[in-house]
Write a protein that binds this DNA or RNA. Structure first.
Ligand code: MN
Ligand code: MN
Ligand code: ZN
Ligand code: ZN
Lengths: 132, 132
DNA sequence: TTTGTTATTGGAAACCATTATCATTTACAA
DNA sequence: TTGTAAATGATAATGGTTTCCAATAACAAA
């Protein structure tokens, strides 16, 4: 079962890997594994909540380990709209976390949503892309 | 030119339409228009900044009018992870807007990003989906 | 062990939203 | 009218993801 292998690959990087990226990594250790199994495993891991699935607009899904005991810390993203570079940003301003929590509570009541997660991304131009 | 027609369709709804949704709407008024032109027009409008392109995870891109003179107000999204329902949420807490601005400024400096936009979505279960 | 039943697996084919191609039409000026 | 460039839409191609399905592994009973 490639579940361990996939989680292992994801735990070793800060990048946002595509299914095929992961496939190639796992393939080095388990040459027998197929791309289909990677997709299947990722799908399961996302459903369980161990892995997050993102779309950064480049036509393929990207994955990262969810926060948790073995996971990375919770973070948000800075996305360059020109080159696609993605920065993991986890140094939140103090008030930021508090307000986020407060907002979630307000929304939960008002719209009768049981909020479990959020996605926050800032878009702009990275330094390199600004200079060309 | 279908530019007007596409903008017109988008300005008449609060929904998040797919390219084909828009194609079908425009088609009623301009039966001659082709799906290709709708894609082309949307692409241009997104580049210009008049239209936003979203991915809510259902495999097709979804579009909405950007805020502005003729546009809707700026808002964030509540997404039901079960049925896919999407709520436009624009009644921000007072502090929310201020903090967002402050955060953008901090990030711009720290990571040398020229931030132009942000995407904020809360995920959870809507009332209907919670009760089943 | 054998046998039967069920779950897992991966290769190949199918799917389907989006893009690229290209011949045709339209716009517009010379 | 005529020449040139832009705009258009039908069709084909692309490519990430899913579906199918036959083969294999796991496991339980006999
Ligand atoms: Mn990340
Ligand atoms: Mn919206
Ligand atoms: Zn960049
Ligand atoms: Zn729902």
């Amino acid at each position: 079962m490639g579940r361990e292998a996939v989680l292992d690959v994801l735990s070793r990087t800060e990048d946002h890997l595509s299914a095929e990226d992961i496939y190639m990594c796992v393939h080095e250790t388990y040459p027998a594994i197929g791309l289909t199994s990677v997709y299947r495993t990722l799908d399961m891991l996302v459903n369980i909540g161990l892995v997050y699935k993102f779309d950064f607009g480049d036509g393929r899904a990207r994955f990262e380990l969810a926060e948790g005991p073995k996971g990375k810390d919770h973070h948000h993203h800075l996305v360059c709209t020109d080159c696609g570079r993605i920065v993991n940003y986890r140094d939140f301003i103090d008030e930021e976390v508090a307000l986020l929590k407060k907002t979630e509570e307000g929304l939960s009541k008002k719209y009768n949503f049981a909020i479990t997660n959020h996605l926050i991304q800032f878009y702009g131009l990275c330094e390199a892309c600004r200079k060309k």
